[in-house]
Computed example of a mutant assay.
Amino acid sequence: MRLLATLLLLTLGLSAQAAIKTQEIPYQATDGTKMIGYFAYDDAIKGARPGIIVVHEWWGLNDYAKRRARDLAALGYSAMAIDMYGEGKHTEHPNEATAFMQEALKNADAAKARFQAGLDLLKQQPQTDPNKIAAIGYCFGGKVVLDMARQGLPLLGVASFHGVLATATPAQAGAVKAKILVEHGGGDTLVPADSVAAFKKEMDQAGADYKFVVQPGAKHSFTNPDADKHKGHGLDVGYDKTADQKSWADLQAFLKQVFG
């Protein structure tokens, strides 16, 4: 009987895993840039469900961003990892990543348009409830989702993981409609203490509903298991399993709160 039960559990586990469906969907921003969205959902769930945008790190739309979309799909959400650089490009070299990021951020309106195009794509999917949308982002992606909240986009919530907190256009009073979760590494030298203080002051003055969580000792990119391999480029980054797990648990609680 014990063997039968074990086999049954394994079968159920495999079935659940196989129920996560993914597809790459081409789309286009208003400036004509060709983009690629990575869509994930659980086809065992019937009907529309809340949707979540995933914005990649400065490396671009790589396997890590796609994995997070699958993770969210496994939690019962409709998830779209969007492309902020165009044509799904990504890199593992910091110089290229910096160039990609600077190009994407040099025009705030263009960055917003690229995010909006991905948001529209997610809403168009039959698995998505267009009235229940949130966004999460990592590193560069954290800045993107925070900037979208600053600009008042129709998102119920945004969550930033080891994200860049600085902005050239601070939120105005009453502009931030989304609830905000920030997961920050206590040992993050790439996002200095003055940026943290400035962000909190900005959010307080804007009257934003936000929660700022510090993961003790965690370095930049603490959620990404591949972070350690980038230390060879002289980057002060590192994976932290405890911080990763705690911040993911925080996200799940946050999403339940914002979606009701």
Rank of each mutant, 00 (worst) to 15 (best):
Lys89Val: 06
His90Ile: 04
His90Gln: 14
Glu92Ile: 04
Glu92Cys: 03
Pro94Gly: 10
Glu96Met: 09
Ala97Val: 05
Ala97Cys: 10
Ala97Glu: 04
Phe100Ile: 04
Met101Tyr: 05
Gln102Gly: 14
Gln102Leu: 11
Gln102Val: 02
Ala104Phe: 04
Leu105Thr: 10
Asn107Tyr: 13
Asp109Met: 08
Ala110Arg: 15
Lys112Pro: 03
Ala113Arg: 07
Arg114Pro: 06
Phe115Ile: 00
Phe115Asn: 00
Gln116Arg: 13
Gln116Val: 11
Ala117Val: 02
Gly118Met: 06
Leu119Cys: 08
Leu119Glu: 12
Leu121Gly: 05
Leu121Ala: 08
Leu122Thr: 00
Leu122Cys: 01
Gln125Tyr: 04
Gln125Gly: 09
Pro126Thr: 07
Pro126Cys: 06
Pro126Trp: 02
Gln127Glu: 13
Gln127Asn: 07
Thr128Ala: 04
Thr128Met: 02
Thr128Gly: 01
Thr128Cys: 01
Asp129Asn: 11
Asn131Val: 00
Asn131Gln: 13
Lys132His: 15
Lys132Tyr: 07
Ile133Thr: 13
Ala134Lys: 06
Tyr138Thr: 02
Tyr138Ile: 10
Tyr138Asp: 01
Gly141Asp: 05
Gly141Cys: 09
Gly141Ile: 08
Gly142Asn: 05
Gly142Trp: 05
Lys143Asn: 12
Val144Trp: 03
Ala149Asp: 02
Ala149Trp: 04
Arg150Gln: 03
Gly152Gln: 10
Leu153Glu: 14
Pro154Leu: 01
Leu155Asn: 02
Leu156Asn: 15
Leu156Glu: 12
Val158Thr: 14
Ala159Cys: 11
Ser160Ala: 15
Ser160Met: 06
Phe161His: 04
Phe161Val: 03
His162Gly: 03
Gly163Val: 03
Gly163Asn: 00
Val164His: 09
Leu165His: 00
Ala166Val: 01
Ala166Phe: 11
Ala168Gly: 15
Thr169Gly: 00
Pro170Ala: 11
Pro170Thr: 09
Ala171His: 01
Gln172Leu: 12
Gln172Lys: 15
Gly174Ser: 09
Gly174Thr: 09
Lys177Thr: 14
Ala178Phe: 06
Ala178Glu: 05
Ile180Met: 08
Leu181Asn: 05
Leu181Trp: 06
Leu181Ser: 03
Val182Arg: 01
Val182Leu: 12
Val182Asn: 00
Glu183Leu: 03
Gly185Pro: 01
Gly185Glu: 01
Gly185Asn: 05
Gly187Leu: 09
Gly187Tyr: 13
Gly187Ala: 15
Leu190Met: 15
Ala193Leu: 11
Ala193Thr: 06
Ser195Arg: 11
Val196Ser: 05
Ala197His: 10
Ala198Arg: 11
Ala198Asp: 13
Lys200Glu: 12
Lys200Asn: 12
Lys201Met: 04
Met203Phe: 01
Met203Glu: 02
Asp204Glu: 15
Gln205Phe: 07
Gln205Trp: 08
Gln205Arg: 07
Ala206Thr: 05
Gly207Lys: 01
Gly207Gln: 09
Asp209Met: 10
Tyr210Pro: 09
Lys211Ala: 13
Phe212Cys: 11
Val214Trp: 15
Val214Arg: 10
Val214Glu: 15
Pro216His: 12
Gly217Phe: 08
